[in-house]
Design a protein around this nucleic acid. Structure first.
Length: 550
RNA sequence: GGCCCCAUGGUCAAGCGGUUAAGACAUCGCCCUUUCACGGCGGUAACUCGGGUUCGAUUCCCGAUGGGGUCACCA
């Protein structure tokens, strides 16, 4: 068989050689140790927490080393394409602080290693497929879907590994004339890798290879034996082929991807070898898991798990910095420790390493996210918090626009208790914050709890006495002493401890009395300090709400 | 089923042959306290199971078990 002749017949339109591309995309001129990473989403427009998780690793690795982080759109499957998806991807990632140096952007492509959109790289893939054909390392395969499933049935019946390989690879040994004939008949075909692997060998003779994974250490696997499709019928590459060609030509040094790719690593290794390329450093990350209905861990699925979607967090109004901080705590095991030691340091100062990445699947922990978020929000200035809430509301809760009309008022509210030695940590995410502070706005204020049973019968009297002695300019101490006096006068203990010791001597304690006031003014029994809130609400509104309870 | 990955409390995890087996979140109790939040103190709670190697294994090796992933002209 004259492979060169075959290659020329199959790819008459290829006018460049691999050497041409090598020259077009030379080694990058970067400082020693600089890492080149990439994110390669398919343009379904759906980027999830897992993508973001990996993107952080990519971004840190590149930028920490003075390298390059680029975005490549992997749109080799036209079925997956969703209009406007690229824009969504870029915007979503930008929202969480991920910025690319190179690749696809909203304005177009930036960088010298493009195109960064796989559908525009067809000529490149064809060129390298042609090279493989010309060297007898790949071949056209005319197997139809039906034939392939028939082969599978036979394999399953014989308990053999399914797939096209070895003796099952019926198109492997077609003669040039046979191929020519089939093509002239218009028979569709794919290009398959002609694998060297032979899985039919006895187990101890199957060849294995070893490769260093930056997260997992040395990996040992059997070599690939599948004649994997590298070019589909329509001439577009499969992921496997595109990955190898692109990451070589784009001079990617580190490939960060989920562990679900581990099983196809042998294919990639064989492709790199057959193409004569040096493989990148692989970093196979653990997958994000969740507890399924059956109580077992399972991979987060985009169909079943809304919390996998980035939108889920945006809708609830988690601050991007909180999500970033949380993700880093599960991304690098020593991050939390570092954060405790450096509470105010910029996240970029943390030295991220692949070695510290966990290699078992982490369960997504909403509790932890909430806890992290409280601290993160505390570090954000009220002004920024205001802006964040406002833009969140503009997108998800437009009916709330009015609470942002008086900037000073809202900022004062948001700032309650944030500057104490032991600051309050009330704020977690926008949805929750808005609910927390709703009673500051008349249209959202409503009494939503009953008076405490200890003081329910006295509620009206407590409120009217309170109103009688109310002086808005009282300082906090004077103010509270008045409440305490009301409590004592009406048979309540001045201190909760007294009541606890001798519950039979009192109706309740001062806390029950103040809870009555709290409910009258805030509509709920739990809130920050009443005096402080009244000062913010103003005299008129406070008195009005109290009177409404009489 | 084949192949691959993984295995310390409820969760995330330190540990890398000898430790009272860290820490964080969650949970429980106490303290602080007019409620809540914060904070402080304390408690419950873990090395999947067998074999080896070793004076000694959570740690190294093998096996089992369990969990996960993957077996497409999807990525």
């Amino acid at each position: 068989m004259n492979y060169q002749k075959l290659a020329d017949m199959l790819f008459p339109e290829v006018d460049k050689t691999p050497a041409d591309y090598e020259a077009m995309f030379p080694q990058r001129n970067l400082p020693e140790g600089a890492k080149v990473t990439r994110l390669g989403p398919s343009p379904t427009g759906f980027i999830h927490l897992g993508n973001l998780f990996g993107a952080f690793a990519d971004e840190r690795l590149a930028h920490q080393s003075g390298g390059v982080f680029f975005l490549r759109i992997e749109d080799t499957d036209d079925k997956r394409f969703v209009d406007g998806a690229v824009e969504i991807i870029i915007n979503s990632l930008r929202f969480f602080g991920i910025k690319f140096d190179e690749g696809a952007t909203i304005e177009g492509e930036v960088g010298d290693y493009g195109s960064y959109t796989q559908s525009r790289r067809k000529a490149i893939y064809q060129c390298f497929a042609k090279k493989l054909i010309s060297e007898g390392k790949a071949y056209p395969c005319f197997l139809t879907e039906d034939e392939i499933s028939e082969i599978r049935n036979q394999q399953e019946a014989a308990k053999q590994t399914p797939g096209i390989y070895g003796k099952w690879a019926l198109s492997r040994n077609l003669s040039f004339e046979e191929i020519e004939a089939k093509i002239s008949q218009g028979q569709p075909y794919v290009i398959r890798l002609k694998s060297d692997g032979d899985m039919s060998l006895p187990e101890d003779q199957i060849k294995r290879f070893e490769i260093e994974d930056a997260i997992r250490g040395t990996l040992s696997m059997p070599v690939n034996d599948q004649d994997t499709v590298i070019l589909k019928t329509n001439g577009t590459p499969t992921y496997h082929f595109a990955h190898v060609v692109d990451d070589h030509l784009m001079r990617t040094t580190h490939v960060v991807r989920g562990a679900e790719w581990l099983p196809s690593l042998p294919i990639h290794v064989e492709l790199f070898e057959k193409l004569g390329f040096e493989p990148p450093v692989y970093c196979h990350t653990a997958q994000l898991m969740k507890i399924g209905e059956d109580g077992n861990k399972r991979k987060l699925s985009k169909r079943k798990d809304p919390e996998l979607s980035l939108d889920y967090y945006r809708k609830l109004g988690y601050h991007p910095a909180a999500v970033r901080e949380y993700l880093l705590t599960i991304l690098n095991s020593n991050f939390e420790e570092w954060r405790i030691a450096n509470p105010d340091a910029d996240i970029e100062e943390f030295e991220f390493t692949t070695e510290k990445m966990s290699n078992s699947g982490a369960l997504f922990d909403l509790n932890k996210l909430n806890d992290v978020s409280k601290d993160v929000l505390l570090k954000i200035s009220v002004s920024d918090l205001f802006d964040f809430l406002k833009s969140w509301a503009a997108e998800f809760r437009p009916e709330l626009f009015h609470i942002f009309e008086d900037r000073k008022y809202l900022e004062t509210i948001l700032d309650i208790g944030r500057h104490e030695a032991k600051p309050r940590k009330d704020h977690i995410y926008a949805e929750q914050i808005v609910d927390n502070i709703s009673y500051f706005f008349d249209d959202m204020f409503r009494i939503q709890e009953d008076f405490p049973p200890e003081a329910k019968g006295d509620a009206v009297e407590i409120i009217s006495r309170y109103l009688e002695g109310y002086c808005h300019s009282d300082d906090q101490e004077t103010w509270f002493n008045k409440i305490r006096q009301i409590a004592v006068d009406m048979g309540y203990a001045a201190k909760p401890k007294d009541y606890k010791k001798h519950p039979e001597e009192y109706k309740g304690h001062v806390g029950h009395v103040s809870t009555v006031i709290r409910i009258a003014v805030m509509g709920r029994s739990q809130s920050p300090d009443v005096w402080e809130i009244q000062q913010i609400l103003g005299e008129e509104r406070t008195i009005e709400r109290l009177k409404n309870c009489l």
